[in-house]
Design a protein around this nucleic acid. Sequence first.
DNA 1: CTAACTGCAAATTCTTTGCATTAGT
DNA 2: ACTAATGCAAAGAATTTGCAGTTAG
Lengths: 154, 154
Amino acid sequence: MPGRYNFRPPWWHGRFRNNGYRITVARQAILDVLSKTDKHLSAEDIYFTVHKDYPNIGLTTIYRTLDLLVQIGLICKHDFGDGRARFELAEGPEGKAHHHHLVCTKCGCVIDYTDFVEEETELLKRIEEELSKKHNFNIIGHLIQFYGVCNDCR
Amino acid sequence: MPGRYNFRPPWWHGRFRNNGYRITVARQAILDVLSKTDKHLSAEDIYFTVHKDYPNIGLTTIYRTLDLLVQIGLICKHDFGDGRARFELAEGPEGKAHHHHLVCTKCGCVIDYTDFVEEETELLKRIEEELSKKHNFNIIGHLIQFYGVCNDCR
DNA sequence: CTAACTGCAAATTCTTTGCATTAGT
DNA sequence: ACTAATGCAAAGAATTTGCAGTTAG
């Protein structure tokens, strides 16, 4: 079947279908943008990028799609303290590696780091276990961030 | 000088004076509210509480004061994902102990915990040291939060 | 007395919603 | 065809700003 092998659908198609969601141009475009960057984009950032190729896709759709993508676990929503939500591909088969963030409080730039993540995760696991028991809390996720001033800002 | 010893000014007066800021009724009232609660209050929460005793203090002043208090390090600003900023007294001579948060994603309640904070802090110090060097980043603070479902919500 | 602070109303900014239309499956 | 998804314009909600009047030091 020559030529056919190129048509393997993206790995995330199942995530949509299994939940009864449709695969639309807008959703593909947004996922495409997020797949091709290592930055942490805001809804508006994504809107402008998508807009170049698909000028008919509105900001509302961006917001609605981002909500959906967060819900089915394809992307993560972050708050770095600049008053707007920021998004990046979640960990996954073809997604990003587990990492945390270093946020510059001057310029707002964000550096991903993977150093110590294993150690962190190991400690987090123990903490989660203990806190779950103690507070009868069902822990699902965690957030670690460092704040400071980046190289360029000093 | 009988009676005089009661007039020792609150420990935070110096923080204002040293920075050229004035000590006003509004600022005292807001700090007072934050001193007397262990909850994480929003600007509006604080506004309503302050309003009972000082009906003439406006929401704008609350916002401006909170900004100031964050800047001089008397309080911390948090985001627990419910779309509004929340505030609590910072660590300090008479402030709270170092702690982190457990956030319920259903009802939004927040539990402070101090367990493991020493272990966390020890690890964080090592990470900070390493990341500072590696990324030439001047690390000032960190954020750790756990997300999950609280006892009441399940 | 003078600059810092405040209140009010209006403006901003990010995000959500209502509703008629379009497009996946 | 049938329903989910979309676009547009308008609504919402939290926070900020301009400006004239007030107050702490």
